[in-house]
Amino acid sequence: MTDDVTLMRSVHDMWEALDPVPVDLADRVLFTLALEDMEFELMRLSESLAPIGARGPETAATMTFAAESLTVMVTVSDAGPSQRRIDGWIAPGAALRVELRTARGVQETVADADGRFAFAALPAGLMQLMIHPTAGAALPLHRPVATPPVQL
């Protein structure tokens, strides 16, 4: 007969084999925890479309993130060897300040009145977007909203 400890060990190993933790989940958690200011709302990934033409020249993936007051749709595409481009669309449309973090540093832009923004020439790896309350924008935010980190 298998004792409780051995059996629980088998159940443990079974789940590790059947449903492994995503390999980069801890890295993504640490990427978020590295933010200096913890006062923000973390968005949920509400939809993710698989890359089109994976590994081909037209590789593109679309993700939608949702916060209480807004959603942001992000399309990631290839822009040359190991370079990525991001096209984003905030809804409802508003000229909000958008910050993008990668391992290489922070970039900033301001969305147009329709909520569209873009970042070009990004390195592969983790990136995180943070949308900030912005004076004069059509959408008042109480605090910044951040996407969970995603792999470019």
Binding site: P22, L25, L33, M38, L45
Partner: peptide, 18 residues
């Protein structure tokens, strides 16, 4: 599902640090 589970893990860590 996996996406929701990842959200919960992220949220939990934020809650702990906060």
């Amino acid at each position: 599902d996996r996406e929701s589970a990842e959200d919960v893990v992220q949220t939990t860590w934020l809650a702990l640090v906060r």
